[in-house]
Design a protein around this nucleic acid. Structure first.
Lengths: 199, 199
DNA sequence: TGTACATCAGTGAACGCGCGTTCACTGATGTAC
DNA sequence: TGTACATCAGTGAACGCGCGTTCACTGATGTAC
């Protein structure tokens, strides 16, 4: 059957979107092409009309998920002061809600380990997208020099990613919440470390 | 063939050890039972003399890898002052050597995401072992109250895990080293945050 | 001491299954005349 | 306006493959007599 113009592109977008949800939930090896296509409301054979291989789709879905997270951060910070913005992102990232919904959350805690074992192309895409996230945080640290801000932002992201990663892996809610708390404290201390020392 | 007493136990240990290396290198889904048994110098059929299922072995191999890391930390800190011990662990964890050798390194960056998707038993074991690692770091913060020390130690581990995780996922060595640097700065700031403010 | 048997860690063929990928086909719609 | 044909996104059977797991078997050594 022939479709209206733009139909194919919209189908492709839907596959990437559903893949980004499925992969964040089940990991890079946990989502098969047939089950993914079912999520997108199609049969598995059509997959190769849109992508060269499963690996190509995975790389694209991870990039999509990071973009979605960056977009979410921008939404979160709308109409806020610089200081409020930083707090809003940290609070959202280290919330129980984020921990309990990996499917719609940041792909770094769920998929970065798989990216580390992937081909160069995937890792290059990942690095570029990670750079964007660091930049968003760095811009919320206007009291620091650009290099300092970048470094603090990198540390804050690493802390948030590690905290969510570990908070999802433990069995007890109390321990898990404690990990999120510790991450929050660490991020706060990083942002304020100069301010609180000179005051 | 019948073997000397303790032979079976030593074979089992060898399987767990090799599994811990293979899993840290390839991820929880990346190592098949046949290829694992080949690493241990055996054929795949014998696997079920030692373990109920592949999942049971994975849980045990992760616990083994964390124990090995904790033991490594103890070796690192021998004959050092408390302050030197903290620095030694952070420097080792955030070294290029550790980043480039996931196979022999801490399993948290490579396997925690998989643990988060595992059964309760695996997550319980993981939580208990993580607790031990937190305790080792907390004991290196004698200037803090026990609760503060625990929280800082948790934050430091999350930061180190996140930093190594991200440093392995990017394609450029410069960016990767920058992530390790940022992790080091964050960990240092956490340890010294009270000290440097009151001085 | 010699012989028959029990033990059991490890072997390797076989199982059903789901995977990633290929490919001949479908059929609604656009285009040519 | 009507008819024949081209297009191409999507279908679903089929492929070879490696997976986790099972199981009848092996054979060196310990034990019973």
């Amino acid at each position: 059957m022939r479709y209206v113009s733009g139909h194919k592109a919209r189908t492709r977008d839907r596959i990437v979107e559903q893949a980004s949800y499925g992969l964040r939930e089940k990991g890079a090896e946990g989502l098969s092409v047939p089950s993914l296509m079912k999520l997108a409301g199609l049969t598995h054979g059509g997959f190769y009309c849109h992508f060269d291989s499963r690996a190509a789709l995975v790389a694209e879905a991870i990039a999509y998920a990071i973009d979605q997270t960056a977009e979410h951060w921008k939404q979160l910070t709308k109409g806020k002061t610089v200081r409020q913005r930083f707090d809003a992102i940290v609070a959202d990232y280290l919330s129980e809600r984020h921990r309990d919904n990996p499917k719609r959350g940041c792909p770094l805690p769920t998929l970065a380990a798989d990216v580390g074992r992937s081909n160069l192309r995937t890792r290059r895409t990942f690095a570029r997208k990670l750079e964007q996230m660091i930049q968003i945080i760095a811009e919320l640290l206007p009291d620091e020099s650009p290099e300092e801000a970048r470094q603090i932002a990198t540390g804050v992201i690493a802390t948030m990613v590690g905290s969510v990663l570990l908070s999802r892996a433990v069995d007890s809610t109390a321990v898990s919440n404690g990990i999120l708390d510790a991450g929050r404290k660490t991020a706060d201390a990083m942002r304020g470390r100069r301010a609180s020392c000179t005051s």
